[in-house]
């Protein structure tokens, strides 16, 4: 396992509280303070309902906390409103979600360039080609997502995230819909993004084997950070998960 000399935190959550819509009952996040350093690969784990997806969404500015602060790449998200929030997000953040979130009506190539087009910046085509080559989809530029396998679609999503040179990629169960081999490929690519491109990756997963690709694992339970693990292996993660779930 590699240890990276990490810079300052690219994502920082301080005492973040998020209640479920409807209000009553235990909050999804009950005062979470956690930071993710630039150029590191972090995994967020926890039992179902522990608030891991909510944490990711609050960190990425896809959801608004009811309390606390979120800083993304040095910017206080709480002060931003739409559409400034979207603009901040598309400059600094990439997403890789379980359901791919590709536009079916666009080709692979168009999907990869979409965020830059939406940002109104001149798309860096050479870089986009390079990224597609890295994820092993060179030559599939004109295919539509519907013509690709699940693993290939997730790699397109990853290429799209990388093409915009984000500071952080948020991944929510990126391997959830994939078979073992395809999942491993995607995790390898995420790892490469961290190692080669110095992109931070924050990944929510329930799979200890996937979490083992990270530099650090944060464990959530009942909306709180309950544990952390550096240099995880599938075995240590599984053991810690069992402990967390039992607690």
């Amino acid at each position: 396992m590699r240890i990276h000399g990490a810079g300052g935190p690219v994502v920082e959550l301080v005492e973040v509280v998020r209640r479920y819509a409807g209000g009553s009952g235990a909050p999804a996040l009950a005062g979470v303070t956690v930071a993710f350093a630039a150029g590191t690969f972090s995994a967020v784990m926890g039992p179902s309902g522990s608030g891991k997806s909510t944490l990711l969404q609050c960190a990425a500015g896809l959801d608004r906390p009811d309390g606390g602060r979120v800083r993304l790449a040095g910017q206080e998200l709480g002060t931003l409103r739409e559409p400034k929030l979207t603009q901040a997000r598309r400059r600094r953040v990439g997403f890789v979600f379980q359901s791919y979130n590709l536009m079916d009506s666009l080709s692979v190539w168009q999907n990869v360039l979409l965020p830059q087009r939406l940002a109104g910046t001149r798309p860096d085509r050479a870089w986009a080609r390079e990224v597609l080559h890295r994820v092993g989809l060179a030559g599939r530029e004109n295919d539509r997502p519907g013509q690709l396998s699940g693993g290939q679609r997730q790699r397109v999503a990853l290429a799209r995230a990388l093409a915009a040179r984000p500071e952080v990629i948020f991944a929510d169960e990126p391997t959830g819909a994939l078979d073992l081999g395809a999942g491993r490929e995607v995790l390898g690519l995420l790892r490469e993004a961290v190692d080669d491109l110095r992109t931070a990756v924050v990944m929510v997963t329930h799979d200890p084997a996937a979490a083992a690709w990270a530099d650090r694992v944060v464990f959530l339970a009942d909306g709180r950070v309950v544990s952390e693990l550096a240099d995880p292996t599938a075995e240590t993660v599984a053991a810690r998960m069992t402990a967390v779930t039992a607690a």
């Binding site: 896809l62 739409e82 559409p83 979207t86 603009q87 997000r89 598309r90 997403f95 979600f97 979130n101 590709l102 536009m103 079916d104 009506s105 999907n111 979409l114 965020p115 939406l118 940002a119 799209r160 915009a164």
Partner: peptide
């Protein structure tokens, strides 16, 4: 769903 995907890809609601 398509609109949500677009928003995730970086489109503002206005876009």
């Amino acid at each position: 769903r398509e609109f949500a995907d677009l928003r995730l890809a970086g489109a503002t609601a206005g876009q």
